[in-house]
C-alpha cells in the first residue's frame, strides 16, 4: 500500500490524560499503548509482544485495559455473528447464475 506505520501522522501519540486511573501516555506507557492493539490483534512482532508482556507485569492500569479490550473482542466474536443465512438464498443465487449464463 506504500504507507508504513511510522509514516502515518495518526500514529503520533497524544500527551497524558489527567485521569488518575489512566497511566500517562508518554514514554514506556506511550509505547505500550501504541502496540496494545497490535498485541490484541496478533499483529505485533515478537519483540513488541515481549516488550508489552514485560510492561504490563508491573503496570496494573494497562494490564486491566488489555484484559478489558481482550474480553470485549472475544464477546464480539462470540455474540455478534448470529444471523442465519435465509433459507433458499443459495438456491436463488445459483438459479440466477444459471439463468444468466445458459450455455
Amino acid at each position: 500500500m506504500g504507507v508504513s506505520f511510522t509514516d502515518n501522522q495518526n500514529e503520533k501519540q497524544k500527551t497524558a490524560s489527567d485521569k488518575s486511573d489512566v497511566p500517562e501516555e508518554n514514554g514506556e506507557h506511550g509505547e505500550c499503548l501504541r502496540i496494545l492493539n497490535l498485541v490484541l490483534d496478533d499483529e505485533a512482532s515478537d519483540h513488541q509482544k515481549a516488550y508489552f508482556k514485560e510492561h504490563i507485569k508491573n503496570c496494573m492500569p494497562y494490564y486491566e485495559i488489555y484484559n478489558l479490550s481482550k474480553t470485549i473482542k472475544t464477546l464480539i466474536k462470540n455474540k455478534c455473528n448470529d444471523k442465519q443465512v435465509p433459507t433458499g438464498l443459495v438456491d436463488s443465487i445459483k438459479h440466477k447464475i444459471s439463468e444468466n449464463y445458459k450455455q
Binding site: 496494545l36 486491566e64 470485549i72 464480539i76 455474540k79
Partner: peptide
C-alpha cells in the same frame, strides 16, 4: 480519540452483559 480508555468499564461488568448489549453497542 488517542486516549487509551475513557470509562470506568471493567472486565467483570462486560462479562455480565448479554449478547444484545454488545450487539447494540456495536
Amino acid at each position: 480519540v488517542d486516549k487509551s480508555i475513557t470509562t470506568d468499564l471493567r472486565v467483570e461488568t462486560v462479562q455480565d452483559m448479554i449478547g444484545d448489549e454488545i450487539s447494540n453497542a456495536l
